[in-house]
Design a protein around this nucleic acid. Structure first.
Lengths: 182, 182
DNA sequence: AAACCCATGTAACGCGTTACATGATTAT
DNA sequence: ATAATCATGTAACGCGTTACATGGGTTT
């Protein structure tokens, strides 16, 4: 399916970026739902350039350091739009290693299961706190209430969804934990 | 990380299975959170046998059809327990192609975004219905209320979590949709 | 007879991570 | 000076999907 291809096209449609910048983006906002390492990104950028979906200018940073600033082409924008307007089926499987362990709870003692779930709850709560902080930072940047036209609307969507995900996890863990305590 | 290794060990710790049976399991209960195709399972079974974590007997079905019934060894059970008792960090990224599209909402028109979100909502509701049906089927099999000791507790955990996941998705989509309508 | 399910395997290819490799620039 | 960050690439390996390949058993 080459999702990375579309992830890069989507990022470049927001603005010009270097390979390094793209790597950085995957560590931030969209990183909750998609990411890739630089070792995968650089070859993909080369491929997309060969295919004519993106192009670049070489820029000198300082005196020697070269960087390539990529931008999306008309052909690339068309390709992106095609993907954005494709309705895909929901994946059968959303892989989650913790839930795989949970499924095998009959292979654990009650104490072991309790520790596993408690550890997961702590980590999910910590993650929710981090996301809440980021949401507060976003709130300060936007003209409340946010709307479709805000340049931060995409960020708002992924942040609220990630927060929903963690809250849902926490709620479920807290609902299951009493069954592992007594 | 070889998660498939542990998925197979976990399944075999519940009972003896053929490669075909394991493939079937991934289409059912645990399929919401982990799965693999038979083309990946058969080589992995061979590898686990070589490593001494599982073993098999050949059984004749009918007159000619051979199948291999696998079971976990003591060494395999130890390996499984080690994994079950390892606390892993929450993954930074839980890949979700729909959310990647959502992040690129600024590349869509309001109408396109509305259609995308509406389509997703319909699909998530349909999935929730299927999961609810499966939950009702499970309810009939168990001595209500379910407890840690029930042989269906693992199934109960993954089903309730999958239902929570879909409900959370639906709730979030319904919260976002008004911003794409007006 | 045909369709569907049971049953096992391999081959080719693409996706993704870790490690290898190098060097410039900026902040402390 | 030193550490952190910016910047780009390749190599090796493992994971995962699609397709190729074969055949037996059961149900309609």
């Amino acid at each position: 399916m080459r999702v990375l291809k579309y992830a890069i096209l989507g990022l470049l449609d927001k603005g010009e970026l270097s390979g390094y910048d793209i790597t950085s983006q995957f560590k931030k906002e969209i990183g909750q739902f998609w990411s890739a390492k630089h070792s995968q990104i650089y070859p993909e950028l080369k491929k997309l350039t060969d295919e004519g979906f993106i192009e670049y200018q070489t820029v000198i940073q300082g005196t020697k350091l070269e960087k390539k600033i990529y931008s999306i082409t008309k052909s690339g924008k068309q390709e992106l739009d095609k993907w954005l307007n494709t309705f895909s089926p929901i994946p059968e499987t959303a892989k989650d290693e913790f839930m795989l362990k949970a499924y095998f709870i009959s292979s654990m003692s009650k104490e072991e299961a309790n520790e596993l779930f408690t550890d997961q709850l702590i980590k999910r709560k910590r993650k929710l706190n981090h996301l809440d902080e980021r949401f507060n930072e976003l709130q300060e940047k936007i003209d409340d209430p946010i709307s479709f036209d805000s340049p931060h609307f995409g960020h708002f969507l992924v942040l609220t969804k990630a927060i929903e995900r963690e809250k849902g996890y926490i709620e479920w863990l807290e609902r299951m934990l009493p069954m592992l305590n007594k």
